[in-house]
């Protein structure tokens, strides 16, 4: 029963993983909406800014982004005389959130596109402003459409948190490496850790399912 003694440190790491997932998913969701809506904005600088953000963060690798923020950004800051050194937690949450937000922006854009032209015409005929139409007509109809894709992204994000162990943040993957180093019991440690990630992913997916059921009630009613 050697493995029970591993659970203490692993649980510590899992707790960090959960927090990282939570913060970066929230940040990513905010960025998704900002950039997804920005891509459809009538103001062209906003459109360009959103498109560049999405392309850059979807087009490069998360690990590169993480290391760039943690190791390269301070150097760039040095060059212009600003202290841009980031705490590992901040760098981790920022990289994860920026990355997942770029993917989420495409989900938001697609969701908004799925709102029918007829709905927008009805809103215009009732003299809603574009902003009112977005918040009161388009988004409430689009969000239930987006949720399954957001659920996949949230699980993706949970998996991606493992990469922050590489900038020595004490998450589950980091603790796993520590315990393995100490015990050399690779098979047990990594089996446990994989199962823990799997369990967290199932819980997260289940939570999104519950959310899906609660926001789209009007879609399931029928005569």
């Amino acid at each position: 029963m050697e493995w029970i003694s591993y659970l203490g440190p692993l649980w510590q790491g899992a707790w960090v993983t959960i927090q990282l997932t939570l913060y970066s998913t929230v940040l990513g969701a905010l960025l998704s909406f900002a950039a997804g809506i920005g891509k459809r904005s009538s103001i062209w600088p906003l459109r360009i800014l959103s498109a560049v953000y999405v392309e850059v963060f979807r087009g490069t690798s998360l690990l590169v982004q993480l290391f760039w923020l943690y190791f390269a950004l301070p150097l760039a800051g040095n060059a212009i005389g600003i202290d841009l050194r980031l705490d590992p937690v901040v760098a981790g949450v920022l990289a994860l959130g920026l990355n997942i937000g770029a993917y989420g922006a495409e989900v938001v854009r697609g969701g908004l596109k799925s709102v029918s032209q007829q709905q927008l015409e009805a809103a215009q005929a009732l003299n809603f402003t574009p902003r009112q139409t977005l918040w009161r007509i388009s988004l409430p109809q689009a969000i239930p459409e987006m949720l399954p894709a957001f659920g996949n992204l949230a699980v993706q994000n949970l998996k991606d948190t493992a990469l922050v162990s590489l900038i020595s943040l004490g998450d589950l993957a980091f603790r796993a490496e520590q315990v393995r180093n100490f015990t050399q019991d690779s098979a047990t440690v990594y089996t446990l850790v994989l199962l823990m990630y799997f369990g967290m992913a199932l819980v997260l997916a289940g939570m999104i399912k519950l959310l899906e059921m609660s926001v789209g009630r009007w879609r399931t009613v029928s005569r």
């Binding site: 709905q119 003299n127 879609r219």
Partner: peptide, 19 residues
């Protein structure tokens, strides 16, 4: 917007807000 306020429209497909 000012002019639209004087008009009301009923659509072929109703276009009610489903949510």
């Amino acid at each position: 917007r000012k002019m639209r306020g004087q008009l009301g429209m009923v659509f072929q497909q109703f276009n009610l807000f489903p949510h």
